[in-house]
Computed example of a mutant assay.
Amino acid sequence: MDENQIVDGLSLRVWQAVFRPGMAEFAATTFVFTRESNDFVRIAFGNAGPRIDAAGGREPVYTHAVTLTPEMAVDLAGLLLKHFAEPTSQRSSSSAEL
Rank of each mutant, 00 (worst) to 15 (best):
Q5H: 13
T69K: 12
T63G: 14
P21G: 12
R58Y: 11
E71H: 05
R58K: 14
T29I: 00
L98P: 10
G56Q: 03
E59A: 11
E3L: 14
D8M: 12
F19Y: 15
F33S: 01
N47M: 01
R35P: 11
S92K: 07
P60V: 04
T88H: 10
F31P: 00
T30P: 00
M1N: 03
S37M: 04
T30G: 05
V61W: 01
I43D: 05
P87K: 09
F45K: 07
S93Q: 09
A73G: 04
S93C: 02
R42T: 11
S94D: 13
I52K: 13
S93G: 09
R58T: 11
L80H: 06
L68H: 06
V74Y: 04
A55K: 04
N4F: 09
T69S: 13
R35E: 09
D8Q: 12
H64I: 05
E59G: 08
V7M: 11
E97N: 13
E36A: 14
A77K: 14
V41Y: 01
F26C: 10
T67V: 15
P87F: 08
K82C: 03
I6Y: 01
D8N: 14
H64L: 05
R58P: 00
S94M: 15
W15Q: 06
G22E: 06
S94A: 12
A65K: 15
L76F: 00
A17Q: 11
F31Q: 11
V74H: 10
T69E: 12
T88P: 03
G9Y: 03
R20Y: 06
S11D: 07
A44P: 07
L76C: 10
F19W: 12
F45M: 08
M1C: 09
E36H: 10
W15N: 09
S11P: 04
L98D: 02
F84V: 03
W15P: 02
H83A: 06
G46W: 04
E97S: 15
S94C: 06
W15G: 04
L98V: 09
N38F: 01
A27F: 11
P50E: 05
L76R: 07
I52Y: 10
L98I: 07
D2F: 02
Q5R: 15
A28S: 12
M1H: 05
D39Y: 02
N38V: 02
T67M: 06
S93E: 02
E36V: 15
F45T: 08
T34S: 13
A96M: 06
V74W: 01
A17T: 11
L76I: 13
L12F: 15
R35S: 12
G57K: 01
M23P: 00
A27E: 07
F31K: 10
R51Q: 08
L12T: 08
G9H: 05
R13E: 07
S37T: 09
Y62D: 06
T30E: 11
F45D: 07
F40N: 10
D53L: 02
A28Y: 15
A27M: 09
V61K: 00
M23Y: 08
G57N: 13
Q5A: 13
D53I: 02
S89H: 10
T88E: 13
D53P: 01
K82V: 03
N47H: 02
L12E: 10
V61N: 02
D8A: 12
T30V: 15
R35C: 08
A55V: 00
P60K: 04
R35K: 12
V61P: 05
L80T: 10
F31W: 09
F19M: 11
G22W: 13
P60I: 03
G46F: 08
